[in-house]
Design a protein around this nucleic acid. Structure first.
Lengths: 167, 167
DNA sequence: ACCTGGTGTTTTATCTGTAAAATATATGGT
DNA sequence: ACCATATATTTTACAGATAAAACACCAGGT
């Protein structure tokens, strides 16, 4: 059976037989998989009143297990500073994250999970991982492993080529 | 060398050793790859004054090589009706797409590429594919093939599981 | 002490996308 | 013919994102 991207590729080949459409096989499928996965995995978060990027901020603070400045959060979550400002404001209002001024540099603040925030992320993460695992479970673990390896190879290549600096 | 998602996984394992974080190996990498690829591949389109979803509408009309109604475009491009309305309005203003009423059903309109629109997509598509191919070229063609196959397997699985109807 | 340039963060203006309501029309049963 | 229901599309109201400007502060040179 053929997935939808294969159909699209055949349509293009009919119109432009001279064109090499193989990039679509990888990039088109990546886009489509991510769209479907995002729709599926964002839904449970919304029920807890969180967007994916807000969840990512809580997760970043938890997994690094220390205070972070807004800029560090922006770098870790690949978001703009402005976006972080808004998300952190929301998380502060919900008392999931707290802010402390820096001693030396008064431009800087340090953000940390509140007790409530830590409890929430520790409850949500296993739930979220379970849900994600369930989406993948129809794929054999070895196949998942191969896929993960190939994606890692691609990611490393893209990070290099597109000039990403690590925080 | 380790990609950034592998680092994130190790951080989580340190915090929650009991948790199975393998879904991140696939889903985290997918998200990150797509973000990087989108940033890279949207840039050339912007120079032509098009967003990715607008480009997708032109591409859909071209590859199906016939008129489409707004609803059909919405289904083909996985967009909401409202989004299609806006994008088509913009494309009509730029005279890349034209609209014709249906003979039988006055709710329906039929959209087609204008001469200008066809010329634009026929110029942009090879350019875009070339750019995408260049991003992938550091990966051996056989590896790309394996990756495409695994993504196809995943996509088919997700389309089945998440209940997608084909247009 | 006072600039100058740089950095960290927030604000502003603007754009895009969506859900839900509104509009217009079609279809089938009575 | 009329009504109820369904469908195609657009409009509206609003949420979220970004780029650019604004703001606040620091650090080094003079």
């Amino acid at each position: 059976m053929e997935d939808i991207v294969a159909q699209v590729m055949r349509q293009w080949e009919r119109i432009h037989p001279e064109l090499d459409v193989t990039p679509i096989a990888v990039i088109g499928r990546l886009n489509r998989c991510v769209l479907l996965l995002q729709q599926a995995t964002d839904a449970p978060l919304r029920e807890h009143g969180l967007t994916r990027p807000e969840f990512d901020i809580l997760g970043t603070l938890r997994r690094l297990d220390r205070e972070l400045t807004p800029s560090q959060i922006a770098r870790e979550t690949f978001a703009s500073g402005a976006a972080v400002t808004k998300r952190v404001r929301f998380l502060e209002e919900r008392e999931l994250v707290s802010r402390r001024p820096d001693d030396r540099d008064r431009r800087v603040s340090h953000l940390a999970l509140t007790e409530q925030g830590r409890l929430l992320i520790d409850r949500l993460l296993p739930e979220q991982l379970g849900y994600e695992g369930a989406l993948l479970e129809a794929m054999a673990p070895e196949r998942q492993g191969e896929l993960a390896d190939l994606l890692g190879e691609l990611l490393l290549l893209l990070e290099g080529r597109l000039g990403v600096r690590q925080p």
